[in-house]
Write a protein that binds this DNA or RNA. Structure first.
Lengths: 208, 208
DNA sequence: AATTTAATGTTACAAAGTTCACAATAAATT
DNA sequence: AATTTATTGTGAACTTTGTAACATTAAATT
């Protein structure tokens, strides 16, 4: 019912709403929020309506209430545990990123095949890949960030799925083949960049 | 006319086609390629037809020809120069990623405000932000990867646009406000992860 | 040479997503 | 208290995207 597109916008709204809240605002109109997030006011209202969020005619929406409801939709009452598999450059960047916790996401462990990377004493320990099943089962981990090279992505994904992982955020530029109950999101930086170049060149051609 | 979605699929096709080529295959059918990329065969044919790519009835598509045509669409005859702005963890991961060159993308310079990061002698030099306009103009750079903190993303984007940048791949979780002739793509890792968790939890609720 | 087959290419249909238009209503104004 | 105004909420129209059906054609088979 609620598709990825709506969810993405909801997360964008949340971001803007947080900023507004920090600035001391208490209410927001669909028009303001739309302008801030690049969405039409009608779309904002429709999204809110779809998620059961009510505003006041002429009074707009209460920011605290909105944030509370959005948090609720995303089950932000409990910390969501995630692992990182593959501790190359990108994996490390993800590990060191500080922005997860304030969104109730905690990276609890990382895994790699390279023994040189194992470090149990760190804030986030790095384990050998073989330990993945055991640790995932012990800690009830259902979500993983996959930052291994393209050539082993499918293989590693299979291991993760066998270990009970239900959702994978993959950075490998391949279409992972997984059973239907597994959710995959792929971020392919090179493709995004290429598609950006394609689009911006198109635009330039017309104008200058 | 050609929208982002098609472009994305075309890039996925290319990836699979390259692998097939390396394995020694010469032709491919819409059915094979669709299976490999998670796209319906009809969609594959429609995409190709839209981009003016012709196959042979009963004979499928010639892989070399396909790859040549796709390269042509993406103007891969010339190296596309890109800069990275912000050399934190993520910026560095991007700088060190080896996969750009084989897609005819070259990161020619990086920029940061932190003087400790300046390193001219590296393969990819890191310059102070103030040098951005000069270098962009000298090297005719039109595309940038933005990996600065959210709080300064808009400000830095403005500087880049003033320096002639036409396309920005941003990793900051904000909607950048830019003039209409500028193309923006935003990759928000936290949002992707949150949306993944939302979706995979939904799925799990039903099944186990 | 005629027929069958297995693929492409395209047209029609369906679904999803977005925008538009406007009714409903709470607050503000007179 | 009546009227105006500003905003939400939603049903309908439109647009985009994807799917299905089928006509077309080149190769293979008989």
């Amino acid at each position: 019912m609620f598709v990825s597109r709506n969810i993405t916008r909801l997360l964008r709204y949340r971001n803007s709403l947080k900023r507004m809240q920090e600035l001391g605002f208490e209410t927001v109109y669909s028009y303001n929020l739309g302008k801030e997030t690049g969405v039409s006011p009608e779309q904002v209202r429709k999204d809110f309506s779809q998620f059961g969020i009510k505003g006041k005619k002429k009074g707009g929406y209460n920011i605290n209430e909105l944030l509370f409801t959005i948090s609720d939709i995303f089950r932000k009452d409990e910390l969501q545990k995630v692992i990182v598999v593959g501790t190359g450059n990108l994996g490390n960047a993800v590990l060191q990123y500080k922005g997860f916790l304030k969104n109730m996401i905690q990276i609890v462990a990382a895994f790699d095949i390279d023994p040189a990377k194992y470090k149990k004493k760190q804030t986030i320990p790095v384990y050998p890949l073989e330990k993945l099943p055991k640790i995932c089962q012990e800690l009830y981990i259902k979500t993983a960030i996959l930052t291994v090279p393209e050539s082993v992505a499918q293989e590693v994904a299979n291991i993760m799925i066998k270990a009970g992982i239900k959702g994978i955020l993959s950075f490998a530029p391949v279409v992972l083949k997984v059973p239907p109950h597994i959710t995959i999101k792929t971020i392919c930086i090179v493709h995004e960049l290429e598609s950006l170049i394609y689009q911006s060149v198109q635009v330039c051609d017309g104008s200058d």
